[in-house]
Computed example of a mutant assay.
Amino acid sequence: MSFLTRRAIATAPRLSRAFSASARRDLAKITIVGNLAATPELRATSTGRDVIEYAVASNSGNKENRQTSWFKVAAFIEEGPRREFLTSLPKGATVYVEGDAVMRPYTDSEGKTKSSLSIYQKTIEVLRRPTTATE
């Protein structure tokens, strides 16, 4: 075997490479930066579990072609300071949200199959709070 052949074999890329030692999970992640459409609301699910729901508006494009995307987010946070913090955020606060995204199919009232994006908050960070008239 020639030197060049041995070198080509030695430097050939592997066909598979493990990037993680953890088990594979089919889950989509999403990151949103935008403004709260309203103060987050606490409500009970049909199973009695508490959920905090809120919407985030994110803009893209320049002034002439600006488009706003609205994202509904749900957070399952137990009673305590973290829940109080989230439910006290005012409308207009700029937030950074990371979460799990799940597409769910449903049938509308006309019998058409559509899909809905559900976002489940994992982390939230407040980037800016709106200024009040007294500040």
Rank of each mutant, 00 (worst) to 15 (best):
R6I: 01
R6C: 03
R6T: 04
R6P: 02
R6V: 00
R7W: 08
A8T: 01
A8W: 03
A8K: 09
I9H: 04
I9D: 00
I9E: 01
I9W: 08
A10I: 07
A10T: 10
A10H: 04
A10N: 06
T11I: 01
T11Y: 05
T11W: 06
T11F: 07
T11E: 02
A12L: 12
A12P: 02
A12N: 04
P13I: 01
P13T: 00
P13N: 04
P13K: 15
P13L: 12
P13M: 11
P13W: 13
R14C: 07
R14Y: 10
R14Q: 13
R14M: 12
R14E: 15
R14K: 15
R14G: 09
L15W: 05
L15T: 00
L15Q: 08
L15C: 03
S16A: 14
S16H: 07
S16W: 06
S16Y: 14
S16G: 02
R17L: 15
R17E: 15
R17M: 13
R17S: 12
A18M: 13
A18P: 04
A18Q: 14
A18W: 05
A18K: 13
F19I: 06
F19S: 02
F19E: 08
F19W: 11
S20H: 06
S20P: 03
S20Y: 09
A21T: 06
A21L: 11
A21I: 05
A21W: 01
A21Q: 08
S22H: 03
S22P: 02
S22L: 09
S22N: 06
S22Y: 10
A23M: 13
A23E: 14
A23W: 09
A23V: 14
A23K: 00
R24W: 09
R24L: 13
R24D: 09
R24Y: 11
R25G: 03
R25H: 09
R25S: 11
R25I: 10
R25M: 04
R25Y: 12
D26K: 01
D26Y: 08
L27F: 07
L27S: 15
A28F: 10
A28D: 13
A28Q: 13
A28G: 10
A28L: 11
A28V: 12
K29I: 10
K29M: 12
K29N: 13
K29V: 05
K29S: 08
K29G: 10
I30W: 04
I30H: 00
I30F: 08
I30G: 03
I30Q: 01
T31E: 14
I32H: 01
I32T: 01
I32R: 00
I32N: 02
I32V: 08
I32E: 01
V33T: 02
V33C: 07
V33Y: 00
V33F: 04
G34A: 07
G34V: 10
G34Q: 08
G34C: 10
G34N: 13
N35T: 06
N35W: 03
N35Q: 08
N35I: 05
N35E: 06
N35S: 13
